[in-house]
Amino acid sequence: MADLDPKDVEKQKEQNDGQLYGVDNFGEQNYREETAAEIAAPTPIRVNQRTNEQNNAQTKEGGTGIGLAAIALSILSLFVFPVLFGAVGIVLGFIARARGAKTGTWAITIGAISLILGMFILPFF
């Protein structure tokens, strides 16, 4: 350091400070933006096909049982307690339909008909 001119030492110090504080060699401010690039290629998500098929089969089995119970309650609601059994049949029908059972739609329809008959038509007879 003793060999260098004091102006050169000061210039070197300014350059080092500029690199630390974001000032380039010409005295202008650099934009301090954070940039990123993806380093690795995206990997596809692989799901075990056999597991999904087994889950779907179990869901359909559960939906079928609930759907049959919903139809039974909806039909029963045509004769006894239409508001109670019809509402329960509709709710179970929606659950069965969400699980993939086609019988859920029938239960919803029959339960809705029973509710309409029980609440609006039968009181007038």
Score class of each variant (00 low, 15 high):
N48M: 04
N48A: 06
N48S: 04
N48Y: 02
N48Q: 07
Q49M: 01
R50F: 02
T51G: 00
N52L: 14
E53A: 14
E53L: 14
E53V: 12
E53F: 04
Q54W: 01
Q54T: 11
Q54Y: 10
N55H: 09
N56R: 07
N56G: 00
N56H: 05
N56Y: 05
A57W: 03
Q58T: 14
Q58W: 13
T59W: 00
T59M: 13
K60M: 13
K60D: 02
E61N: 15
E61F: 15
E61Y: 13
E61Q: 15
E61D: 12
T64Y: 06
T64F: 07
T64V: 09
G65M: 08
I66W: 03
I66P: 03
I66A: 08
G67W: 00
G67D: 06
A69V: 10
A70E: 03
A70P: 09
I71M: 11
I71K: 01
A72G: 13
A72L: 14
A72C: 10
L73N: 10
S74R: 14
S74T: 12
I75W: 05
L78M: 12
L78S: 07
L78G: 06
L78A: 12
F79W: 08
F79Y: 14
V80W: 15
F81A: 11
P82E: 05
P82K: 12
P82C: 07
V83W: 06
F85M: 10
F85K: 01
A87S: 13
A87E: 04
V88N: 00
V88L: 10
V88E: 02
G89D: 02
G89H: 00
I90M: 12
V91F: 10
L92G: 09
L92H: 07
L92C: 08
G93P: 04
G93C: 03
F94C: 12
F94A: 12
I95V: 15
I95G: 03
I95R: 03
I95F: 06
I95E: 05
R97D: 06
R97W: 00
R97M: 08
R97H: 02
R97N: 12
A98N: 15
R99Y: 10
G100S: 03
G100R: 05
G100K: 03
A101H: 01
K102I: 09
K102Q: 11
T103I: 06
T103F: 08
G104P: 13
G104S: 10
T105C: 02
T105E: 10
T105H: 07
T105K: 12
W106V: 13
W106N: 11
A107R: 04
A107H: 07
A107K: 03
